[in-house]
Amino acid sequence: MARIELSFPDDVFCFETRMQVRTTDINGANHLGNDALVSMLSEARAQFLISYGISEGDNSGKGIIVTDLATMYQSESFFPEMLRFEVGLMDFNKYGGDFVFRVTKAENSQPVARAKYGFVFFDYQQKKVVPMPENFRSRFA
């Protein structure tokens, strides 16, 4: 089975938020489930965008769409731990780039996971990928 190694420079992270592991986030092995972590990553991404005044979609039908997700689990997390989600952007191309995440336990900074979401800008009305808006690129380049 292939293994991935995700490593990001410290200076790429420009936002952080905290979320508590809920009882509903716990799986049959009694720790944070991978499905719950993916939902928490999506919430962290949404909070990041909101903090910069960016909507995932706009009135013209254009927005951001996730193209892929890679996650590297580093340790278990349990209810009711508080997790720190650091979020950043990197590897821009003509159409998008990567949201990157570093997840640690808030109390002791123990690594829990690293992840990256590939994304592109998408015209939902025309159903096609569109170039990244310059105002987005210039804000984070």
Rank of each mutant, 00 (worst) to 15 (best):
D68V: 05
E81L: 02
S42Q: 13
A44N: 01
A44W: 03
A70E: 15
G57C: 08
S39M: 14
I50W: 07
F79G: 06
P80T: 03
M72T: 14
R45S: 07
M82W: 08
G63H: 10
G53C: 03
V87I: 01
G88Q: 09
Q47Y: 01
M40Y: 05
T67M: 11
G63A: 13
I64E: 01
F79N: 11
K94H: 12
V66S: 10
A70M: 14
V87H: 03
L69H: 03
F85R: 06
F79H: 15
S39G: 10
F48Y: 03
S75C: 04
M72W: 08
Q74M: 10
I64L: 12
L41Y: 09
Q47L: 14
I54L: 13
G57I: 09
G33P: 07
A36F: 10
A36L: 12
I65P: 05
S75E: 14
F92C: 06
V38S: 02
G61V: 09
T67I: 15
L89C: 06
F78N: 11
H31F: 15
D91E: 12
K62S: 07
S55A: 08
V87K: 00
F48S: 01
A70V: 12
F78A: 12
I64K: 11
E56S: 02
K62A: 07
M72Q: 13
L83Q: 13
L49R: 00
